[in-house]
Simulated assay, not measured.
Amino acid sequence: MPRNPRPAIATGSTSRTPLATPEEVAAYLGVPVKTLYQWRHRRTGPNTLKVGRHLRYRWPEVDEWLAAQATYDLTA
């Protein structure tokens, strides 16, 4: 039986599914998937959810985490 695609939600000009896979988040952040797993182990990365045995990310939490990582050079 074919799997039903996950429903997409609109966020700005792009469409993303409500829950993201590690591969999707890694591509979005421009880091290797292995880095996401290291961040999860160190508890320094975006929050994760366990869905069964799979890791998933909520896009709003990824965006909040990314915004919190921003550093600004006020001396320039």
Rank of each mutant, 00 (worst) to 15 (best):
M1V: 12
M1A: 12
M1N: 09
P2Y: 00
R3W: 06
R3L: 13
R3S: 13
R3V: 12
R3I: 10
N4R: 14
P5G: 05
R6H: 06
R6Q: 13
P7G: 06
P7T: 11
P7Q: 13
A8E: 00
I9A: 03
I9P: 00
A10N: 13
A10M: 13
A10Y: 08
T11F: 11
T11L: 14
G12M: 07
S13K: 04
S13N: 03
S13H: 01
T14Y: 01
S15K: 01
S15Y: 00
R16L: 05
T17H: 12
T17L: 10
T17N: 09
T17Y: 10
P18N: 00
L19P: 00
L19E: 01
L19D: 00
A20R: 14
T21A: 14
T21I: 11
T21K: 11
P22W: 06
P22E: 08
P22L: 08
P22H: 09
E23Q: 12
E23L: 08
E24H: 05
E24G: 07
E24I: 04
E24T: 10
V25I: 10
V25Q: 08
V25E: 06
A26Q: 07
A27K: 07
A27R: 07
A27C: 04
A27D: 10
Y28E: 04
L29A: 02
L29K: 01
L29I: 02
V31N: 08
P32S: 07
P32I: 04
V33T: 11
V33C: 04
K34P: 05
T35P: 00
T35S: 03
T35K: 01
T35Q: 04
T35N: 03
L36I: 01
L36R: 02
L36C: 02
L36V: 00
L36Y: 01
Y37C: 08
Q38K: 15
W39E: 15
W39V: 10
R40A: 06
H41V: 03
R42D: 04
R43A: 10
R43C: 06
G45P: 09
G45Y: 05
G45R: 06
P46H: 08
N47I: 03
L49W: 03
L49R: 09
L49V: 06
K50I: 08
K50M: 13
K50G: 07
V51S: 04
V51N: 03
V51F: 05
V51E: 05
G52R: 15
G52A: 15
R53G: 15
R53Y: 10
R53K: 14
H54I: 09
H54R: 15
H54F: 08
L55E: 07
L55C: 10
R56F: 04
Y57G: 12
R58Y: 03
R58S: 06
R58P: 04
R58L: 12
W59V: 05
P60Q: 13
E61D: 15
E61V: 07
E61G: 07
E61K: 12
V62P: 03
V62K: 02
D63A: 09
D63S: 08
E64A: 15
W65Q: 03
W65V: 02
L66F: 00
L66Q: 03
A68T: 11
Q69Y: 02
Q69R: 08
T71F: 02
Y72L: 14
D73C: 11
L74P: 13
T75Y: 12
T75N: 15
A76L: 04
A76V: 05
